[in-house]
């Protein structure tokens, strides 16, 4: 399931809902991303997340479908917020449920790595020097690349 929204989410309630009706589930792995108060050496007072309505949902759906194809998942969930957020706010929740822990750990890792390099979101930080668009990190590309099947790596 995919949700793109401005409002906050309740992690406990979301994880409970993911596994309530399916007792074949042996474990749920989740990742929650937060707004930090520091970017390099600059302090961040707020952050605005912009996205591409339509393409965002399409890309998140594609990424989730790819995870479902690669791992035996009973359920999966991606919630991503946009709009103005402040340090300590939740940005993203990724969760995967499976019969066994290894599939849920790996799929969760995969989802956040691919989301960070493919889903059309952009962060603008408010710093003492004014607003600043966050640059993409090479480390995120490297993290995403480890999930490419060997035959399609280029």
């Amino acid at each position: 399931m995919i949700r793109v929204q401005t409002e906050d989410f309740d992690v406990g309630a979301e994880l409970a809902a993911l596994s309530t009706d399916d007792h074949s589930i042996g474990g749920v792995t989740s990742f929650v991303g937060y707004v930090r108060d520091l970017a390099g050496s600059a302090s961040v007072s707020a952050m605005t997340l912009e996205h591409y309505p339509g393409m965002t949902e399409k890309m998140l759906g594609d990424i989730e479908a790819e995870a479902q194809r690669r791992w035996p998942l009973a359920a999966s969930l991606i919630i991503h917020r946009y709009g103005r957020l402040v340090p300590g706010d939740r940005i993203v929740l990724v969760a995967c449920a499976s019969a066994h822990r290894q599939a849920s750990f790996e799929a969760c890792n995969f989802l956040i790595d691919w989301l960070k390099t493919k889903a059309p979101f952009w962060k603008q930080e408010q710093t003492p020097d004014g607003p600043r668009w966050v640059d993409a990190r090479a480390g995120d590309d490297i993290a995403a690349r480890r999930w490419q099947p060997p035959e399609s790596s280029s």
């Binding site: 889903a119 668009w133 640059d135």
Partner: peptide
């Protein structure tokens, strides 16, 4: 057609 910088969500 959309143009944008490398993405920075998550």
């Amino acid at each position: 057609i959309a143009f944008f910088p490398p993405v920075t969500g998550g």
